[in-house]
Structure formats: structure tokens, C-alpha cells
Design a protein around this nucleic acid. Structure first.
Length: 274
DNA sequence: GGAAATGTTTACCG
DNA sequence: CCGGTAAACATTTC
């Protein structure tokens, strides 16, 4: 469920509530909470101090005073919650302390597509993030070059922007919203688009995600909430995603939904021509 | 009961 | 190798 704005909202929450604290002990409550590729079980975290929380695209990791990191992916329904009251779907628990102050972080995940992993890093990036391209908010993100790479492929533009190895952070909601804003049909062939069209699309994605981040991301239900259990409000600003049958806010034509690449795509058939 | 849900990976086919 | 499609993972909701 969570895309870049939601994961960044979670990162900020974790930054506030966990940095400078020490993990006293952990509890793994579900076998799928740990990535099968993890170097070790969560018990190696005992005694580790949390130095910072980093993110690339939809991947998060805790930097520790250890030669390894705790990395995490929220999948479709993963959450980190600080001192939660509700323990449903809790898959793992980190017990923290700072002096005499104690707190707990729950990793909750209804659908269990998310995971935690103990990993080494190369150039400050966990192994699982090595093949993930810079996300659209990183200073190393080169919009023009990415646009050029995309036009050199012959795939549909939506497939291209969802590919985390080309650029990262965009998921199904923001892909549809960005394509709507840039007036590009999701099935447009990348080799038939101009580099400037793709650059405009990337700019649209940056704009949409920046606005979403400002209001705490997109929540449709309790499946996405921040570390304090609060929803984001960007669902109120959606123009295309989930708007099938409603009027396009730009031209009034009914928004259509098509199945595409195994997922739903929402677009305005008048504004977004192939 | 069927369909769908904010993700990623893998298998299979042309 | 490239690209498209479907399925797999698991759970819940409409």
C-alpha cells in the first residue's frame, strides 16, 4: 500500500521516536515478518543503538551502531506503530529504552507482504536496495537521464514509472495521478514519447508526491496510518485513482478504469490520449 | 461467491 | 535479452 509519501511519513515518525534509543530486546510473532534472505534473526538487534532512519523509494532501514542494518519493506499493508493499543496483526516488536524511558515499536502487517531483514550495506545502502534506482526526491536523481533511458525502451509508460529499477518511489496511486496531471495515457509506448514528455511526467510525479507528503500521504482506510496511528489526507485530492465513473476534474469526462499489467489503471479518456 | 486492494518476485510464453 | 501476462504470497472488505 505505501508509496514514497507514505513511507517517508513513516520514516519521519520513526526518526522522531526511535533515534538515540537502544533496542533492549525483540519479539518475532509471525514467521513471515523476517525476510528469508535476512542474515540473522532479530535477536542480533539486542543492545544496538538506533542512529538514524534512512529511505530510498519504498525501502526503509535503521542505521545502528553495528556493522549491519535493520531494513524494512512495508509491502501492501505494513505499518510501524509507536506504543500501540491495538495488537491485531502485530508481526514483530522492538522494545526500546533511553535511560529509564521505555517504548515499543510494533511492526504490523495484515497481508504479510512486508518484511524486516538484517543486512549488510554496500556504499551505505542495504543489499536489498542495491538494484533500486534513486527515488524522485533524491539529490542524485537525474531527471533528464532517466527520461532518456525510458524513451529508449519500448514498454508502456506506466510500466516504466512503476519499475523501481528505473526510478523508485512511485506505486499504483501516484502513477495514475501523475499520468493524469501530465495528460499522458498509461499505455503510451515509451519509444513514441518525447524525452520532454517523460520529463514533464516526472515533474508531475514530484509535484503530486510533494503535495501528498505535506498532508501525510494517502489513506483509504486503516491500512495506511503513520506511526501514531493517524491517517493521511491525500485521498481527498485524488483526481484519477479510484475515481472510475466520476467526472474528470479538468474536462468533466467520466474517468475510466482498465486492467493493465495485472493492476487497475484510472485515466481520463479525453485528456489522456494514446 | 467473486473481485479487488497503495508491492515484489518469479515463471512462462512469444 | 526484451516485453507481456499471470500467478504467487495472505488477508480483508465490498
Amino acid at each position: 500500500m505505501p508509496e514514497l509519501p507514505e513511507v517517508e511519513t513513516v520514516r519521519r515518525g520513526l526518526q522522531t521516536h526511535t533515534v538515540g534509543r537502544t533496542i533492549t530486546h525483540t519479539l518475532q510473532l509471525h514467521p513471515r515478518a523476517l525476510n528469508p534472505k535476512s542474515n540473522a534473526g532479530l535477536e542480533v538487534l539486542d543492545g544496538a543503538k538506533i542512529l538514524s532512519i534512512e529511505r530510498r523509494g519504498k525501502f526503509l532501514w535503521f542505521v545502528l551502531d553495528r556493522p549491519f542494518v535493520l531494513s524494512a519493506h512495508l509491502g501492501m499493508s505494513g505499518q510501524f506503530l509507536v506504543d500501540p493499543v491495538d495488537h491485531r496483526h502485530t508481526r514483530a516488536i522492538l522494545h526500546l529504552k533511553k535511560g529509564s524511558k521505555k517504548s515499543v515499536i510494533h511492526f504490523n502487517d495484515q497481508r504479510t507482504f512486508g518484511w524486516l531483514s538484517i543486512e549488510e550495506t554496500i556504499n551505505q545502502m542495504p543489499i536489498s536496495v542495491q538494484s533500486i534506482a534513486p527515488d524522485i526526491f533524491e539529490s542524485s536523481f537525474d531527471s533528464k537521464n532517466v527520461a532518456r533511458v525510458i524513451t529508449q525502451r519500448s514498454i508502456s509508460i506506466k510500466t516504466a514509472i512503476l519499475n523501481q529499477n528505473i526510478l523508485s518511489g512511485i506505486g499504483n496511486i501516484y502513477a495514475d495521478e501523475s499520468l493524469w496531471l501530465a495528460k499522458i495515457h498509461p499505455e503510451s509506448r515509451t519509444n513514441e514519447l518525447k524525452v520532454s514528455d517523460v520529463e514533464r511526467l516526472i515533474k508531475a510525479a514530484q509535484e503530486v508526491m510533494k503535495k501528498a507528503l505535506e498532508v501525510g500521504g494517502t489513506s483509504f482506510d486503516e491500512l495506511y496510518i503513520n506511526v501514531n496511528g493517524e491517517s493521511g489526507y491525500f485521498d481527498l485530492s485524488l483526481n484519477a485513482y479510484g475515481q472510475e465513473g466520476k467526472a474528470c476534474p479538468r474536462c468533466g469526462t467520466e474517468i475510466r478504469r482498465i486492467k493493465f499489467a495485472n493492476r487497475s489503471s484510472h485515466f481520463c479518456p479525453k485528456c489522456q490520449k494514446k
